[in-house]
Design a protein around this nucleic acid. Sequence first.
DNA 1: CATTACAGTGAACAACTGTGCACTGACAAG
DNA 2: CTTGTCAGTGCACAGTTGTTCACTGTAATG
Lengths: 220, 220
Amino acid sequence: MDARTLTAVATRQSDEQVSRQERKQRTRQALLDAALRLLKDRTFAGLSLREVAKDAGIVPTAFYRHFESMDDLGIALVERAMRSLRTMIREARQNPATYDDAIRSSVHTLHTHVRANEAHFRFLTRERYGGTGPVQAAITTELRLFASELAIDLGRFEGLSEWSAEDLRMMADLIVTAMLGIVMELVDVRTADPDADEEIAAKARKQLRLIVLGVAGWSS
Amino acid sequence: MDARTLTAVATRQSDEQVSRQERKQRTRQALLDAALRLLKDRTFAGLSLREVAKDAGIVPTAFYRHFESMDDLGIALVERAMRSLRTMIREARQNPATYDDAIRSSVHTLHTHVRANEAHFRFLTRERYGGTGPVQAAITTELRLFASELAIDLGRFEGLSEWSAEDLRMMADLIVTAMLGIVMELVDVRTADPDADEEIAAKARKQLRLIVLGVAGWSS
DNA sequence: CATTACAGTGAACAACTGTGCACTGACAAG
DNA sequence: CTTGTCAGTGCACAGTTGTTCACTGTAATG
């Protein structure tokens, strides 16, 4: 079952009666999908233009009709993956219950979203730390922004309303880092073992609880 | 100022009167150094055998006299970098004072060691998350072991003596992940700004304090 | 002093890379 | 119906890659 064939067929079968620019956007998607697929066991840096093009079912030179360079493609991939992340956080945000409820549901939505969009999250965590160049820069920026938003959200909880912006940011960074670690563990699990998943989720809950408990005794 | 020339000269000037195997080990070192040097702005995956060989001042084929493959070289690099880390932790371990003292001195030694061995720590953090294949596997294993040792150390502190092994491990993982995040920030700072360094160190202390404070309220 | 072991050499290879160029054919606009 | 736009093609190129092979000079061994 060749991925290339799949893409080609999928494209062709719905090629009838579609506008020209729509078809262009479809191959663009095919390129992004191909890249994401190949990234399963490779770093972005070790990904070649020709390979991606071939896997998307087009000739290497046609690649340039959609992206200026591989870095360009990479940045588009970052945006796409961050949209996944933002969708998730929006879902997690809408229940401003107690600490314990927040932890429980947050970890649950995290787990669910990671499993549903494994490739995106694998890409994000890998390139966040391991990458170089424009792609890593883009992720760093986006994640910084993300932590800022989390810091604001944290400020709304009881016991945190009087924290300084700096301290809130510190706590947000800690949470983001810890949860990225959890995401890494989730996407790096070789076999899809539900028990292992639950174990990791339990660890995530405990880590968050430990952090939150620290809030009670905090003095800046 | 070519690194290749530097290495070659440095080798030659002390070539006189050294045993054969000693000289071999010296070029082996040159290879490791070259790799580490090139890794400053590249992923290990994007590092070519020829490049490393050239930078070490030998011809590509001579590389095989020292390493079976690039992955082999990578694993040797992991061992070398982990020795750095272990040296550090041994130094940090020898003062079993109060929590606050432990945090202060730990962050201090961390900061010092990272600045003294930037290349090693950059390599470790990058490949830990970003890598693939044998190199990442080696780092993961070593770091897991490292966290286990930390968990044991933690068990000796007051308030933690009755924690379950699992909970201690959870806490150790959280600390390791958080500190690796700090290390990442340290080695990714573009310019060597002492103020930025102190800011990061302060954040590290606060994060550790927040975690430690959580211990007081913990109930498994 | 003669012989062996072996770190390092240099040429050659097949495979792969990114990118330039002239092209084709189908769709959209006039 | 004619014409221009443009996604995708195919060839070509100059580099770089890992690895092979037969080799050279010299330090270590007997």
